[in-house]
Amino acid sequence: MSDPAIATEALLREPWDGLKLPEEQALSYQRTGATFGIWIFIASEVLFFGALFLFYTAVRAEHAEAFAAAARETNIVYGTVNTALLLTSGLTAAAASRASEHAALIRLTRWCLVATALLGLAFLVVKGLEYREDIAEHLVPGPGFKLPEASAQLFFGFYWLSTAIHGIHLMIGIGLVARLIVIGWRHPERIPGNPQVEVTLLYWGFVDMVWLFLYPALYLAGRSG
């Protein structure tokens, strides 16, 4: 990173500034630390969602038919559109992350961050429409549930919970990206080379990955036959 326009001094944080390294090296080391830190957190999150998917796997194994019947009730159009939206936001996030390494690409970085946040919001809007339809179709577990088998409610227990937890993660991601947009708007020099950009976008990538597994779990089961 010999790019002269990277504002090393403004980006260095405690304790990385005290390592008796030249500033650019120190910032690079700080970035290593930040990336490592977020990956540890992602590994932790893998276990968090791993437990959620274990619940799905075990209960699906115990109630295969009821699960297939219940999964047919989800709206595959909304699900597929949302998957496409998130994959596209992953594209803009990855582009923003790569562009942020170069001060010359600050415009591209900013526009990609804006696009990422907007695509995330679009996902939430579609999700909201889908929730409205689900409620209208009595797919909320409890008295008056649409399907007769009791264990079909388990699938929708998972549906509501997993989409809500994923949605909360996505909202946090949107908030973090929005924070970067604000920083980039007020202090454009603080975006290039800033470790927080990569950290935020790695988190975004992880939230994307979770959805990639929720999609077949919620929308693709029980469609054939």
Binding site: T32, T35, F36, W39, I40, I42, A43, S44, E45, V46, L47, G50, G90, L91, A93, A94, S97, L202, G205, F206, D208, M209, L212
Partner: peptide
């Protein structure tokens, strides 16, 4: 996504190991 968007393909061994730990413990 992990390899090319989150750039595990060019990440250090330490970071790949961290990601692998998440999978191993799962």
């Amino acid at each position: 996504v992990a390899l090319l968007f989150m750039r595990l393909d060019s990440a250090s061994a330490l970071i790949r190991l961290t990601a692998a730990c998440g999978l191993f413990w799962s």
